[in-house]
């Protein structure tokens, strides 16, 4: 199947540092300075304790939590659970959807977008 062209991400003041880092190949997540827990999607206020949060670079390693290939549209939506803990929505790319399984190890791959910064997708590890 031919893969879908990914649109540029919408961007706001909370997400801009993430995409700036993405352009340098760095994958950031946000962690709470109070309860120490990492979360997704990144936000300024901790979704667990309302504490303050800070950026950190993540490993880019994860496992597939669930996925759903749309073969005719040419892409696979997925949730990937990061090694750091949180589960994020993403696309699985460069991988035959028939070969995927829940629990499978995957690794980060930044994919270029149509006129915007790259976005964090995943591919078979």
């Amino acid at each position: 199947m031919s893969e879908r062209k990914i649109t540029a991400p919408a961007n706001n003041p909370e997400s801009e540092p993430f995409y700036k880092a993405a352009e340098e190949g760095k994958f950031l997540i946000r962690r709470c300075t109070a309860c120490k827990k990492a979360h997704w999607y990144p936000r300024a206020v901790c979704p667990f304790c309302f504490g303050e949060t800070a950026w950190e670079e993540a490993s880019g390693k994860g496992v597939i939590y669930s996925y759903s290939p749309m073969r005719r549209a040419g892409y696979t939506l997925a949730y990937v659970t990061l090694a750091e803990g949180p589960t994020m929505m993403t696309n699985i790319v460069d991988t035959d959807p028939d070969s995927l399984s829940i629990g499978q190890a995957v690794k980060l791959k930044f994919v270029p977008t149509d006129g915007g910064p790259p976005v964090p997708c995943f591919t078979a590890a």
């Binding site: 991400p9 919408a10 669930s66 749309m70 549209a73 929505m89 696309n91």
Partner: peptide, 22 residues
């Protein structure tokens, strides 16, 4: 959620599809 998700094209069928798959 949009800056983190919209470009991944979560539509109605695949978001429900992930629930069924799981």
């Amino acid at each position: 959620d949009s800056p983190w998700e919209s470009h991944f094209a979560p539509v109605t069928t695949n978001v429900y599809g992930m629930v069924a798959k799981r």
